[in-house]
Design a protein around this nucleic acid. Sequence first.
RNA 1: GGAGCGGUGGCCGAGUCCGGUUGAAGGCGCAUCCCUGCUAAGGAUGUGAGGGGGCAACUCCUCCGUGGGUUCAAAUCCCACCCGCUCCGCCA
Length: 430
Amino acid sequence: MLDIRRFRSDPDALRTGLSRRGGDAAANVDRIIELDVRQRALGTERDDLRARVKVLSKDVGRLQGQGDAAGAESLMAESRALGERAKVLDVATDAVALEMHDLLLRTPNLPAEDCPDGRGEADNVVLRIEGFDPEAYDAHQRVPHWDIGTELGIIDGERAAKISGSMFTMYRGWGARLLRGMVQLSLDRCADKYEEIRPPTLVRTDTMISTGHLPKFDEEAYYIERDDLWAIPTAEVPLTSLHSQEVLTAAELPLRYCAYTSCFRREAGAAGRDTRGLLRSHEFDKVELFALVADAEQAVTSQNDILARSEALLGELGLAYRILDLCTGDLGGSAARTWDIEAYAPGCDLWLEVSSVSWFADYQARRANIRHRIAGGKGTDVCHTVNGSAMGWPRTVAAYLETHRQPDGSIAVVPALQPYLAGVTSFARR
RNA sequence: GGAGCGGUGGCCGAGUCCGGUUGAAGGCGCAUCCCUGCUAAGGAUGUGAGGGGGCAACUCCUCCGUGGGUUCAAAUCCCACCCGCUCCGCCA
C-alpha cells in the first residue's frame, strides 16, 4: 500500500511512477485524492461534533454532582442532538474511507527509480549470463525432463493426475530424494544468517492481503471456505506477516528468515500453458528467503545477499543461469524492483524461472503494519521487506535432470548433493 | 465439539462488579541529567501509536482483542465473533 501522504504531497510523482507500469493504475490517483479530501472534510466536521459532545458530557456529570437536574437535562438534550448529527457524518465518513482503502489496496507499488521501463516480458533486461555455452550441450542432454522422468521412473505425472487431477506432480525414488536433497542443501546454505521457519501453509485473509496477494488476485489462490483460510502461494506470505502489527527496535533489524513449504497456485489464467513435465503445477516446493529491514539502504543490501545465495546454489548444482532485471511492465504489483533468475534447461531448450528476488519498499510492511522505532529520532517508521526464492523446485529439478543426464541415461549427482543422496555419484533406473 | 478463565501502552500489570476530568495506577524497559575513579547500585525528569488542523507554540479526533448496540457519556453495561490458556470429549 502506498502512503496516503504521498497522494497529498506529490501526486505527480505517483501518476508518472504508476504509469510506467502501463495499465490503468495511474487513474486511481485522482480518485484516491478526491476520496481523501472528502474523507477529511467529513471527518473534521464529525470530530468537532464529538469534541462538543465530550465537553457537554463532562458538564452533565458535574451538574448532576451539584444536584442541578434541570441543567443537566438541557445539556443532555443538546448533546443528544449533536451526537445524532455526528453519527450521520460518521457513517458517511466510513463509507468514503472504505472505498478509499479498497482502492489503495488495489493500487500497485511504485517501481523503483532504476527499474527498467518496458511493456512486458520481452522488455526485461538481461543483467548477466553465467555458465552458459550453447555449444557445450551434447545430444544426451537434449532430452526433455518429462522423458527423463518416465525413463528413470522418478516422475509420475499420470498417477499424480489420478490422485489430484492435472497439473499436479509426483516424484518417486531418486527423484523424490533429489528434490529433498536440494531442499536440504538450500536450507543448510542459508542457516548462517537466516533463521529457519516452518510456518503454517494455511493462512487468514488478512495475511494474504498484507503481501498483496489479495484482494486483487483471489482467483489465483486456493480458498478453504468452511474455515475461511487460504493455501499460501509462497512462504513469502506467512513470513511477511510474522511481525505484523509489531513495533520493532532498530537494533533488531534486519530480521532474516528462511522457510521451506509447499506452495499452492490455481494457475487460473494459465490453462494449457506449460502443461508438460514439471514446468507449471498447482503445488510445488520452494525454499524462500526473507528479510525485514529498516530502510531502502538495508533493503538493497539484503536483496543482493539473497540474489548471491541463490546464484551460489545454482553454481553448486552446476546449472547455467541468467539474471533478469524485470521491467516496469512485468513487475509484480507489490514489488518495487525484481531480479529473476532463470536456469537453462538444455533438454527443452528453455530458460526456466527458478527464483524471483524482490524489494517491496514499504508497500507490504504498511499493509501488514510492521514498524520500527526511528533510531535516534522520534516516532516510528514503516519497515521494508525483501524476499526471494533460494530455490524454486520443479523447474530446478527439470534443469538439473537435463543438464546432468549422462550418455548412458543416468543422472550425475554433483558433489554438493552427494551427502544428501546417500553418497552416490549418479543414479539410474532402480 | 462442550465447560471454565482470560485478551489493557515497547513489555509486565491494576482498573471492569457500582459507566463520568482515566490515554489509562504501579513496575520493567528506554532517553536525558545527577551521583560515582570505572562498572554496578541509587536519585531526578521524561517516555504510546495513528490521523485531522496550524508557519509554529499548540490543538482536536480515534485506539484498552474485533465488530455492532445501549447512553448525554463506555476499558467499564449488552450482543455477536476472533484469539489464547485449562479441563472434558473426539481424533492422531
